[in-house]
Design a protein around this nucleic acid. Sequence first.
DNA 1: TCCTTATGTACAA
DNA 2: TGTACCTAAGGAC
Length: 270
Amino acid sequence: MPEGHTIHRLAQDYAARFQGREDLRLSSPQGKFSDAATVLGGASLTRTEAHGKHLFLGFRAGDWVHIHLGLFGKVTFGDAPAPPPTDTVRLRLANATSYVDLRGPTTCALITDAEKQAIHDRLGPDPLRPDADPAAAYARVRRSRTTIAALLMDQKVIAGVGNVYRAEVLFRHRVDPYRPGRDITAAEWDAIWADLVALMRDGVRDNRIDTVRPEHTPEAMGRPPRVDDHGGEVYVYRRAALPCHICGTGVRTADLAARNLFWCPTCQTP
DNA sequence: TCCTTATGTACAA
DNA sequence: TGTACCTAAGGAC
């Protein structure tokens, strides 16, 4: 599930169900986080935060649980009573009314304030954070020979964009994914950034990625709605060889840095 | 039941 | 650039 919008939504949802309550219990049925769960004991959740794809659960001054879902991590919320956990649950939070299970994360670790700060320091601006500075991202983009497709996935350049938002925002701005960063104009970057802010805010609200403009929706175009397992309506992501919604050209796909890239060779210009 | 795939990242060579 | 890691679902047998 995880691009930045998912993580910001998780920060909200963890807070809504657990923040400020005194009846919290932590456990690690799988065992890999048992020591930390014991250290935290019955501490209450005081705040939550997201930066890019990193989630931080704050328990007391200096105590943070740092979570990164990686490619496979999943989080499941539910109402009490919590069912018996399966043996893949890395971290369960439970109180009298709710539970939440974390499975398969790349990272789930107890860290200090200083360690958390170090993570912020190595991440680029996040379109979903109010403190984000798009000019800092553009400063890196404009002096790079690397393709814009790779730069958008580089969390040091911009935090929170993943393979879906990358493909979709480049399509929406008609930018060929192989164009070098240095050939992206300031106006193009400003438009891409503003679009990411809007798209990702929608993503947090809806808990899915929809990128198709109203005039290109299945209803407007007279096509059947797309239903994929990520749940959203998109232009090119995972639509290899299918006709482009706008021009009908077959959507192309290629490997770029071990990830699948999708684009329309007609609509997107070098 | 096995194989492939996936919205990610880190580290080795 | 390749590989390892974490999990679950879907499709091929």
